[in-house]
């Protein structure tokens, strides 16, 4: 079974929050919706959770006319007046499941989540990671087909974030879940999901695999959102571009040739010191810093300063080098 979002639009007041969203989400898939804050991510999630009604369009499944996702909120929203076990069994209680069965299922899910010893505690006695596990348990005890997660890891610190990310992945396989999650951290999206939809200004600007997203953003808005790139404004001279650092042939991924071209140079995988068919520019190295297995090198060309990622110890500060594009440079 797959889920379909068909021309979903949402208008609040005079503001168009979502514009004709069309998406298909396969069963047992982790689907990421990535975008900046205020792009309509949470609104979309609320519609899928039936908390909000779209102005137009519909959300349906192959054999479920009105699928309802169980939403795990960014701030977890554990009921403050209930203990952990009361929180977890809330959904079952509302469905009038007998107490004995409720508690048995709660014990089982708490064991899976590793929170059995927290049963009697109140939410304000838990750490962020524990609260998230309780929130997940409260959703998963209902055996949902579709789980929605709103910025699930953004309030956790770095170490815990990776741990929870792997844990969610493991749960997804164990419970055969379809997970739709929204985030504004691209790394979270890439780590958890093979299909990422970029939602900016209420529009799905691109739907792609992580690697392809980075290499070929659909437009300038996506490229700018993904960041980790230099944007150099330029002008057209016939079919070549003229910018402060580079003059020569370019290509573009957009349907039409951009009117005012912006040269797109991502930090990674675009510039090299090895000679290629596409000479770029001569630049002086201002600085180079260790960022894991690469170096972030700051370059100066004339008055323009830009950054690229290079292998360690490839350059020396103060020296000038000839740089080459790996392929024909791209403009937006």
């Amino acid at each position: 079974m797959a889920y379909y979002l068909e021309k979903i639009s949402q208008t609040k007041g005079h503001q168009e929050i979502l514009k004709q969203i069309d998406l298909k989400i396969e069963e047992n898939e982790v689907f990421a919706i990535l975008g900046p804050s205020g792009g309509g991510k949470t609104t979309l999630l609320n519609i899928l959770a039936q908390i909000d009604q779209p102005t137009s369009g519909r959300f349906y499944g192959d054999n479920d006319a009105q699928p309802k996702g169980i939403l795990v909120f960014q701030d977890y929203r554990l009921f403050p007046h209930m203990t952990v076990v009361q929180n977890i069994t809330f959904g079952l209680k509302m469905r009038h499941i007998p107490k004995k069965a409720r508690l048995a299922r709660a014990a089982e899910i708490m064991k899976t989540m590793g929170i059995s010893d927290l049963a009697k505690r109140y939410p304000d006695e838990l750490s962020g990671g524990q609260q998230q596990r309780v929130a997940l348990a409260r959703a998963l005890i209902l055996k949902p087909k579709l789980v929605l997660m709103d910025e699930p890891f953004s309030s956790l610190d770095e170490g815990l974030r990776l741990e929870m990310l792997n844990f969610v992945k493991q749960l997804q396989q164990q419970f055969q879940l379809t997970i739709i999650f929204v985030t504004h951290y691209k790394n979270e999206a890439y780590l958890l999901s093979n299909q990422v939809a970029i939602l900016i200004d209420g529009t799905v600007m691109q739907l792609d695999e992580p690697a392809h997203l980075e290499q070929a953003p659909a437009n300038l808005a996506v490229a700018e959102f993904l960041g980790q790139a230099n944007f150099i404004p330029g002008t057209w001279i016939d079919k070549t571009i003229k910018t402060a650092i580079y003059q020569g042939p370019v290509t573009w991924h957009t349907a039409k040739k951009p009117v005012t071209p912006t040269l797109y140079i991502p930090f990674a995988q675009f510039l090299q010191l090895t000679v290629s068919d596409y000479p770029a520019f001569k630049a002086q190295v201002l600085d180079h810093r260790w960022i894991g297995n690469l170096e972030r090198v700051t370059l100066q060309v004339g008055t323009t300063v830009l950054s690229v990622n290079l292998p360690p110890n490839a350059v020396t500060t103060g020296e000038s080098y000839d740089f080459y594009f790996k392929q024909l440079p791209v403009v937006y």
């Binding site: 908390i51 309802k68 169980i70 009921f79 809330f90 959904g91 509302m94 469905r95 209902l142």
Partner: peptide, 12 residues
């Protein structure tokens, strides 16, 4: 916030 959460978890 909590009402919305409750409704999503299936409460009338």
């Amino acid at each position: 916030r909590y009402e919305v959460t409750g409704r999503n978890l299936g409460a009338s």
